[in-house]
């Protein structure tokens, strides 16, 4: 399989990345190099194998830890917004969202 420039454009849009033509072309070559080494992997017979999402799960049962329903986060708006690019009256500002 080999990625076309339209594949690159589609993926870049999904990822919200802007790739000028030259960069997109270099990206296409590099990704195709990479997927060259991926081909081996696709051929492996994995019938009946469970995917492994959490590494330690091969070794012991893991279960989601649950927290008691308690409120313990005070209002820290100032500290939490200190890095915000655009603020007004405590709201984060973004270019108009059109629904």
């Amino acid at each position: 399989m080999s990625l076309t420039s339209s594949d690159i454009a589609r993926i870049a849009k999904l990822a919200r990345l802007e790739l000028p033509a030259a960069e997109a072309e270099r990206m296409r070559t590099q990704l195709n190099d990479f997927f060259g080494i991926v081909e081996k992997m696709r051929a492996v017979d994995t019938a009946g194998i469970e995917p492994l999402e959490h590494p330690v799960a091969t070794f012991q049962d893991i279960a989601l830890r649950l927290r008691e329903d308690r409120v313990s986060e005070p209002n820290q708006r100032e500290a939490n917004q200190q890095n915000a690019p655009a603020l007004e009256r405590g709201l984060f500002l973004v270019p108009k969202v059109i629904e």
Partner: peptide
């Protein structure tokens, strides 16, 4: 998203 009272912008309350 609060669309009112921000000219050309949207305010986000999380």
């Amino acid at each position: 998203s609060l669309h009112e009272d921000f000219i050309g912008q949207t305010g986000i309350d999380l």
